[in-house]
């Protein structure tokens, strides 16, 4: 079971959280102008990487806040936690 550091409440067990899939998938501002294919791309397609993944979590049984996590999908290691609405967290060993 993961231990996730909620940016507000601190480290809590995974059971307190809900998972929200990939982060930084912006709602298109001009949805009406998008082609059906482009809309489907936004709605259904996710990167699903093996390795580091920027993803959304919500502290359901705590402060109810959404936030973002950088997690390695193979090792479950969590590299960073940051507030919803912030730009993607840059890790020291990653190219900007």
């Amino acid at each position: 079971m993961l231990r996730i550091a909620c940016p507000w409440c601190g480290a809590r067990d995974e059971t307190e959280f809900g998972y929200g899939g990939e982060a930084h998938v912006a709602l298109p501002a001009d949805a009406a102008q998008l082609s059906d294919a482009a809309w489907a791309e936004y709605l259904f397609m996710r990167s699903n990487p093996k390795g580091r993944h920027r993803e959304r979590w919500v502290h359901t049984h705590g402060c109810r806040r959404w936030f973002n996590v950088v997690r390695d999908t193979t090792t479950e290691r969590i590299f960073a936690v940051y507030l919803a609405g912030s730009p993607p967290a840059q890790l020291p060993d990653e190219p900007a």
């Binding site: 809590r12 307190e16 049984h61 705590g62």
Partner: peptide, 10 residues
């Protein structure tokens, strides 16, 4: 104070 789960109750 903290919101959490006690057994299966929020």
């Amino acid at each position: 104070c903290a919101q959490t789960l006690l057994a299966k109750a929020p």
